[in-house]
């Protein structure tokens, strides 16, 4: 898994590429927690290059959502591949997360 970070005036965009699973979820966890701890409460996670996620990865996303919600910030996902979207649906995350089709669409909500 590789992470990309892009700070704009509206939000911080975190891009995930490759597999997000039990072996590497802690990398994502540290990055996101660092951002939140540094008062970045407007975060967009761009997933167009993420081709696998397990419940360990989902747990990090859920954790980040909960924290940002408490701080009245905004945490959105975008660009989910079809397979990943199905996993989100199975897990019921589509009703919890704000998920947009792509980066441009997501920008509009900030």
């Amino acid at each position: 898994m590789e992470l990309f970070e892009e700070k704009t005036d509206k939000c911080v965009v975190v891009g995930i590429s490759g597999r997000l699973d039990t072996t590497n979820y802690s990398v994502l966890e540290k990055r996101l927690m660092d951002l939140i701890d540094n008062r970045h409460d407007r975060i967009m996670v761009e997933c167009s290059r993420m081709d696998y996620v397990s419940s360990s990865g989902l747990r990090i996303l859920l954790m980040a959502l909960k924290k940002i919600s408490l701080a009245k910030g905004k945490f959105v996902l975008c660009g989910l591949q079809e397979n990943i979207r199905e996993i989100f649906e199975i897990s019921g995350f589509t009703s919890i997360f704000e998920i947009y089709h792509d980066k441009e669409e997501a920008y509009k909500v900030f």
Partner: peptide, 12 residues
Amino acid sequence: LSERQIGGLGIH
């Protein structure tokens, strides 16, 4: 969301 636990999701 507030009650949501990650445990059990794998089995699900």
